[in-house]
Amino acid sequence: MPININLDKILEERGMKSNELAEKIGITTANLSILKTGKAKAVRFSTLEAICEALDCQPGDILEYTKN
């Protein structure tokens, strides 16, 4: 998919673990893993908002578009 998720990079920069973030934003680690691995078909605005709030970043920092 041409949309890349840079969640791993941001998590590393913030020094936060995946399960910690999952707990903070109220989703399961399995769902967070789906998001991180790029298997997700869609992301809810509410989830994106919660991630941005927890990691203190912008949606553009997490999502990146690359041409095929």
Binding site: I27, L32, L35, K41, A42, R44
Partner: peptide, 8 residues
């Protein structure tokens, strides 16, 4: 259904 399950 698959799309719904893969919506985070």
């Amino acid at each position: 259904k698959e799309e719904n399950e893969l919506t985070v």
